[in-house]
Design a protein around this nucleic acid. Structure first.
Length: 313
RNA sequence: CGCGGGGUGGAGCAGUCUGGCAGCUCGUUGGGCUCAUAACCCAAAGGUCGAGGGUUCAAAUCCCUCCCCCGCAA
């Protein structure tokens, strides 16, 4: 099929690769414009753009695809079908009307649950143990279109959003290919979503990573996993910002105020009081330093038991 | 030219300002001790101090150039 692909981050890469692999004519790859990124603010190409260039697929980057130039560009490609995967822009009805065989989206959740731009992160933050991939017909709402195929995937204990995303991406790619095959054969199911059962979660913000020590340790662990690798869970100690990358919940009863440093020993490790149990910090990152095992950190940076995290700001 | 922190035995760090013996907490190895240990005691190995150049009687430390890592902002 003549397909226009739209996607931006790493998650979308296997889907684009699979389309090419399956012999589809990918006539264009749309992704977000290059953004200044990292130290030095250098313009950086997104993963989809890199792959597209590598495979000789024409790349299109519009600040707003729904603006006239974007619409014209898509129209000019004369694609039969549009495939989107974590594109990062909402398609207008005008855009949706262009491809004669419609638009198919690869979404990383079991719709209608976890609609929105960051389903993988939110599943983990909310403590889910099962998620999945849904392929769907894109309509004018955000992740509201009719569902095509769905595949359940278990979330591993301790798995981070980054790890889960890397695991889901190829599963999504495979499901996409199967969906297209069944669409072409005319035997693909098409199931309207139960909108009453839908949940929607917002885009990630930096501030989401701030640890609320009044929460139970178990929820803080889920936050730590769910915002890894971005924005990362963090807390403050005085003016310093510490990131916490790996932690376990300890159910023991704790009487100290939430955020209190209960233990900081280079051998026994670090424990912090929470609103429910203690948080055992296994891996952290101090300002200016790289992430490291808590015990390693404590060897060179003794900390006073009784200090309160998250007290300022 | 966005702002800032950092690179020192295997790990985490101090020492750099004010040049003068390569140091701390661990780990590793060997030995001892103990019913036992995230325990304790004794000993040992392990370093181009990120790279190159310069200044100096003398450079981890001061000057110049470069490389690499990290945080913030976006």
């Amino acid at each position: 099929m003549r397909i226009a692909f739209m996607g931006t981050p790493e998650f979308a890469v296997p889907s684009l690769a699979a389309l090419l692999e399956a012999g589809h004519a990918v006539v264009g790859a749309f992704c977000q414009p290059d953004r200044p990124q990292g130290r030095g603010n250098r313009l950086t190409a997104c993963p989809v753009k890199k792959l597209a260039l590598e495979r000789g697929v024409p790349v299109f980057q519009f600040e707003k695809l729904r603006a006239p130039e974007g619409v014209a560009a898509l129209r000019a490609l004369e694609a039969e079908l549009v495939v989107t995967a974590a594109f990062g822009q909402i398609l207008s009805q005008e855009l949706l009307d262009i491809p004669p065989r419609g638009t198919v989206n690869v979404h990383a959740s079991l719709l209608p649950a976890y609609r929105g731009p960051a389903p993988i992160n939110w599943c983990i933050i909310e403590g889910e143990t099962v998620t999945g991939i849904t392929t769907m017909r894109t309509d004018k709402g955000v992740d509201t279109g009719d569902m095509l195929l769905q595949e359940r995937v278990g979330i591993l204990p301790g798995e981070t959003a980054g790890e889960l995303s890397a695991r889901l991406a190829p599963i999504g790619a495979a499901l996409l290919i199967r969906t297209l095959r069944e669409l072409e054969a005319g035997n693909c199911p098409r199931i309207p979503q139960d909108h009453a059962a839908a949940t929607r979660h917002p885009m990630l913000r930096k501030e989401l990573g701030r640890i609320d020590w009044a929460q139970p340790a178990r929820r803080i662990v889920n936050l730590v996993r769910g915002v890894d690798p971005w924005p990362g869970a963090f807390t403050t100690l005085g003016a310093e910002v510490y990131k916490i990358w790996r932690a376990e919940a300890e159910e023991a009863a704790v009487s100290a105020a939430p955020g209190t440093l209960l233990q900081a020993d280079a051998k026994a490790g670090m424990r912090i009081a929470t609103g429910g149990g203690a948080l055992r910090v296994l891996e952290l990152q101090a300002p200016g330093a790289k992430r490291m095992a808590t015990t390693d950190y404590l060897r060179g940076h003794p900390m006073a038991v009784g200090a309160r995290f998250g007290e300022d700001a």
